[in-house]
Design a protein around this nucleic acid. Structure first.
Lengths: 328, 328
DNA sequence: ACACGTTATATAACATGTTATGTTAGGGGG
DNA sequence: CCCCCTAACATAACATGTTATATAACGTGT
């Protein structure tokens, strides 16, 4: 088996992955039944087992017992009924309800499976679940409880509020935003330095100079002000990239947008095939240098020599540790 | 939420349960995306994420990367293609392969989701997974590995071989087996005692005297000899049951069939609404009494008084601890 | 070079879970 | 007493995973 993207994506694709695992176990359980002469679908086990244990029950009761959806129970029942294993009768006193019960054939089959297969399946499944990581059943139960207590959707919203209270949004580059890229860059460069030829080349042709060479440009925006900042990852040569043109409009300072943008730009870098990431700046940019240091960049004067002449204003160089470029 | 049958069925229905949990998480993830303005299907995330991280790849490469089935990948891709997010191009040099790549719109969307939603979903999912039971991701990974190493189906067969080396089978009662029930009982009763009126009533009308009153009759069979033993659970009154008519043909001794049958009969009892389980026997039946003791029955002379007159031969009474009647 | 097995992808069919909604029966309030 | 909301079940539609199989292109061995 090759590299498994899901394994690398952390919890994002956990749903998909769990589902595949579950489907695999169900299919195997079905095959085991077939191999021992019981041509049943795995989905039918739980209803059969419940009927055996609790006796006849209405559809609604089965829904509660199985903790499944009502149409799901109805469907399972229909398949069992078609096999002649269950029956559906009216309930005296409430013509809406119908009671599911095992036919004699159904009872016979359940009893047989209960003694001749299920113990072995249970043992085999326990086998797979066994390990140093705790009991799967209790873990699944806990996850179900957690979801009951607060849905994943609610948790996502809560986490967003908590991790990003300012409501900042990352906006990927598109040509319509070229003007913002240029404006924001001009604003801070002209405020402290003067635009150099390299600056002009980049802000006038961002697609050619950055994107088409495998680089990325991100923007940060707020609900009220729109695009307020930008940052680029530019390929210098090979797998070596420069973090450049990071800037936030003066009118939007104080919203921690720079910190947020830098963090997300580094996250972006981690998903790119990148061996080295460095930046060039000037010692006058104290606030920016502080951000870089906080994000993990380290001063590295050797880069200055390699990059001599790129920018007249460059007198500080920093690099991001290669180890941190590897995805968590 | 009421009693959850799956929670009680141990590992048997783990597949079903895992699947429901997974479906719930996926649906929630989808809703979270919709709520934040990204109308995507959760199944599409993994392919989008893989394309973003690894760049264009053929269908086969995606199958490896996502660890999913090829038709699954094709379907996900088709849905993305329909949204204009991906493209499928031929691969020069091999006209069989086709390469999936992100369109500019697709790249833009992925970048946006990667920074504006996925971190929060990941955090929320990690939240649900967090707990004292260990890390869910590593647990799932371990289960996947275990299944890779040996399928559940193979494990089931191995467990059966190991837990039941004699190849004994439990056969539920049906009227066609009434003669076996009577023969086996006559064989041992007449060998050591004489048939009493109560014996005759039961073996001549097992359905009326046992099954119709909520009791059960089990048989044990082997491949070569067919039905070789039987055992019944008979309702005496209310929730009080008697274990009775347990016997194995003399011709089939030495296969541990009695032990197996008794164990499974007790398992059967645990799935019945039963408050008390006792048995009556005679001190001459030393082997049987030894089995009963080994299975957990305890001597209880008080039962003899309550049951006075039922059987002339009864001079030993035993009861099964009520606590052990509760399902594990 | 051709026949035939293998590989890459597409398609069909199925399994199994879900929501959404229709239909009929109960039940309570004006 | 009737109207209308609710409850119980059925049905339809969809989501998403699977297997099985068709089709076309590769490639190998005689």
């Amino acid at each position: 088996m090759s590299i498994d993207i899901l394994e690398m994506s952390g919890h994002l694709a956990l749903g998909s992955r769990l589902k595949r695992l579950a489907e695999r176990m169900q299919a195997d359980a079905g095959r085991a039944h077939a191999a021992m002469g019981f041509p049943m679908q795995p989905s039918q086990f739980s209803l059969l087992s419940a009927l055996d244990r609790f006796g006849p029950m209405t559809v609604s009761e089965a829904v509660d017992r199985l903790n499944a959806s009502q149409p799901g129970v109805t469907r399972i029942h229909n398949s069992l009924k078609a096999l002649g294993l269950t029956r559906l009768d009216g309930v005296p006193g409430d013509k809406r309800s119908k009671r599911i019960s095992l036919t004699p054939e159904g009872q016979k089959l359940v009893t047989s499976m209960k003694h001749n297969i299920w113990p072995y399946i249970d043992a085999a499944a326990a086998d797979i679940c066994a390990g140093p990581d705790g009991d799967v059943l209790s873990l699944v139960a806990r996850m179900e409880e957690a979801l009951d207590a607060q849905s994943l959707e609610d948790r996502v919203m809560a986490r967003r509020q908590e991790m990003n209270p300012g409501g900042l949004t990352i906006v990927p580059y598109e040509d319509a935003l070229a003007a913002d890229f240029a404006d924001i860059t001009k604003e801070w460069v002209e405020d402290m330095f003067t635009l150099e030829p390299e600056d002009l080349a980049i802000i006038e042709h961002p697609r050619e100079r950055i994107l088409d060479r495998g680089g990325r440009i991100l923007f940060v925006a707020t609900e009220d002000l729109g695009i307020i900042g930008t940052c680029a990852l530019m390929r210098v040569e090979g797998d070596s990239f420069e973090l450049t043109k990071m800037g936030v409009r003066a009118a939007a300072r104080g919203r921690r947008a720079g910190e947020f943008l830098l963090e997300r730009t580094l996250a972006e870098a981690r998903t790119m095939p990148m061996a080295e990431l460095f930046l060039l700046t000037n010692r006058k940019c104290e606030a920016a240098i502080h951000l870089y240091e906080k994000a993990g960049f380290e001063h590295d004067a050797s880069i200055l020599e390699r990059s001599a002449g790129r920018y007249g204003r460059a007198d500080v160089a920093m690099s991001y540790p290669a180890a941190r470029l590897k995805r968590a």
